[in-house]
Simulated assay, not measured.
Amino acid sequence: MVKLSVLDLANIGEGFTAADALANALDLAQHAEAAGYNRFWLAEHHNFAGIASAATAVCVGHVAGGTSTIRVGAGGIMLPNHSPMVVAEQFGTLETLFPGRIDLGLGRAPGTDQHTMRALRRGPDSSEHFPQDVVELRTLLGPPQEHQSLHAIPGEDTNVPLWILGSSLFGAQLGAILGLPYAFASHFAPQELLRAVKIYRERFEPSVQLAEPYVMVGCNVIVADTEAEAKRLFTSSQQTFTRMVRGGRGKLPPPIDDIEAFWSHAEKAQVSSMLACSFYGTPETILAKLEPLIETTGADELMVAAAIWDHKARVHSFELLAEALGQKAWTL
């Protein structure tokens, strides 16, 4: 049975503030917990006018403190931006405060542009040390070893579950070698999804954390009471990605009635490729649209994003999706 989880970028909608986005993130997490979602992740992005989750560990604490059972974590922390020691202390503290509920997904990309990367005091070669940094972080979060001189307090022996995130074959290979669960960012970069999942499963080596390969697949899912409304809500994401193609950034725009008048044919083709793992529909139609993705990937879990400008509509979408998933016993 495939599990269902939430990826929230804490989107700041046009006409709203970062404070609104963070309050909405907690509210969505509370509704997701009540609806039976497995986990709620926030992602690290910097210098984005429309994303409020840059201080990801702080946001995780905000959400975890306002919920009681749902797992909360980072999807993910861009490790090249940080020292493993600092991340171990941050997430060790979170695990100490909220035992058994914290996840730590790790990405290799800087999660921003070159100017911001320099502002974060990270060099252009930081990502080259990602495998070693993951191993160092896992050691700091694990049980103390004899003659170990460096200790993360809190952090040591909290054994916070690590995940490898990726949108290429590199992360698949690293996750397999280290025996860690693997989450593919197909919600914005789906091109290598099937190859990456295949490589991960074929090369997986069991670890203390994980005995068998575990795959999480990212996707965008929007559910509304009517097909037309779901299609309209999806135009916020389509506009955002079109603006990215044009080299611009901004807050999440409200939906529009005619997306065809907004983008060119070339932009439509490029954005549609980036959003290939995106689905919209009603509770009656959405399962049939998701089934092929689950079947072809063999996903153990879906990590669902939904960039919906209206917060009530976003909460409603996640509730409708949970209800729709509950209508069928998934045995794929």
Rank of each mutant, 00 (worst) to 15 (best):
P206T: 03
L165Y: 09
L325M: 14
P154K: 03
A19I: 13
E202G: 00
G111S: 02
N159M: 15
V2C: 11
A228E: 13
I259W: 07
A74D: 02
D8I: 03
F48M: 14
S5I: 06
G107A: 06
E146H: 14
P206V: 12
P292C: 05
H115I: 15
A288L: 12
K312Q: 12
D300F: 09
S127A: 15
L140D: 00
A25S: 14
D225K: 13
E192M: 15
G73N: 04
R138A: 13
G13C: 10
K231D: 15
G76Q: 05
L252E: 08
L290I: 08
A228L: 15
L150P: 06
R108W: 03
P131Q: 06
Q30F: 08
S149D: 09
H151L: 11
L4K: 09
T93G: 09
T240Y: 05
S149E: 10
K289Y: 07
H187C: 14
G298V: 01
K328C: 12
V215P: 04
P124W: 01
T297D: 05
L325Q: 00
P213Y: 10
L325E: 00
V245Q: 15
A288C: 03
A306W: 03
G326Y: 02
D258E: 05
A228K: 15
A55S: 15
A109R: 08
E14M: 12
K289R: 12
A23G: 03
G73S: 02
T297R: 00
E301D: 13
T158D: 03
G66Y: 06
V215N: 04
G281T: 00
A25D: 05
I51A: 07
A52R: 11
T282Y: 02
E323C: 13
Q327P: 01
L94Q: 01
Q148L: 07
T116N: 09
R138M: 13
P161F: 01
Q270N: 08
A261K: 14
P255N: 04
F279E: 02
V315I: 14
A269V: 04
Q209F: 02
V63C: 14
V72Y: 02
L97W: 09
P253G: 00
S273W: 07
T96G: 08
P84M: 12
P80H: 01
E284V: 10
G92R: 00
M117I: 07
L180Y: 01
I294P: 02
H187V: 12
D125C: 00
E319D: 00
P99Q: 03
M78Q: 12
D113V: 10
G248Y: 00
H265L: 07
T139E: 13
Q90N: 07
G107L: 12
L252F: 05
R249Q: 15
W263L: 11
W41V: 11
T67Y: 05
G171I: 13
V6P: 10
E227H: 05
A313W: 09
I102M: 11
V221Y: 06
A306M: 09
G247P: 03
F48C: 13
G15P: 10
M216I: 03
Q90H: 09
M244S: 09
G111D: 12
L210C: 03
L79M: 06
T17Y: 01
V223L: 08
G250H: 04
E156G: 14
